[in-house]
Design a protein around this nucleic acid. Structure first.
Lengths: 144, 144
DNA sequence: GCTTGTTACATGCACCTGCATTGAAACGCC
DNA sequence: GGCGTTTCAATGCAGGTGCATGTAACAAGC
């Protein structure tokens, strides 16, 4: 366990602050527009990209969320009518989740709000080149 | 509401991933060592830096957490014996919070674990110069 | 085809957060 | 100095998260 240098500690502190500021800004924008939270967007996006019902397991692998959270988000999406659950015909233990027409609709309505918030929180403070450098640096941490 | 460019969206996505990875790593390290969560560390650190009992308001301003969260963290620290609450003699509405001997102790024991986790999650993936650049970029977002 | 083990989700519980509201104390104003 | 207003914290409630465990379906070995 070596100790972090000063710059690393500063980067950590800023990671916390920047994330909180940006994240809260985005969530607040969605809420203000009467939209579901960010987590739903990610899940619905994966379901749409998949172009077919997805096993909860597969969703878990894509979203990198713990199993119990996937289970619950699937329930919430289904309750809201944005997704539909079914049993995997090939394996009675497995559950499939598919985006519904309404789910596609809400995704489409969410994007302008989401995009605007990303621009306000991030884009407004960075040039494209800076954003690219930031993304590259963060990727090193994320990829850990 | 202009739309974010591609680099900005990438930076946003990486901010989410990097934060989650690093944050969970740090919290897990603290928990594994039987230590309190990160939020307590921050609060206790402010109390120690203050070198005198702090008004909850002052703590709120420093930690940038909502009022009700400050109120509750103060209770938890007090319950755990790491801080002591009292009424502001100059204003009966105000509550003061002071770090206790035990609070100083836990702060001291937490730091090596915390520092090791920061190094593992961040330092191990960045040179000091990169960390400095990252911190500077993130500060722009945090300072919003 | 029954037992034993494993896999895929679901869920009870404890805790934490956000929001709205309450209660207490201080302040302003006449 | 009494009364409405403002400020400082606390808290009831609804909902989200993590952890540990429960339940159902499948698989393997015999």
């Amino acid at each position: 366990m070596t100790k972090p240098d000063e710059q690393t500690v500063a980067a950590w502190a800023m990671l916390l602050r920047a994330h909180r500021a940006a994240y809260e800004g985005v969530e607040a924008a969605l809420k203000a527009a009467g939209m579901p939270p960010l987590a739903w967007y990610d899940a619905l996006l994966e379901l749409r990209k998949a172009r077919a019902p997805l096993r909860l397991q597969a969703l878990e692998a894509r979203l990198l969320l713990p199993q119990y959270n996937i289970s619950r988000i699937a329930d919430r999406l289904a309750d809201a009518g944005y997704a539909e659950k079914s049993v995997d015909p090939a394996d009675g233990r497995g559950r499939m989740l598919a985006i519904t027409r309404q789910g596609r609709g809400v995704l489409k309505r969410m994007w302008p709000v989401y995009a605007g918030a990303i621009e306000a929180q991030m884009g407004a403070h960075l040039t494209p080149a800076e954003a690219a450098r930031l993304a590259a640096l963060l990727a090193r941490i994320a990829g850990a």
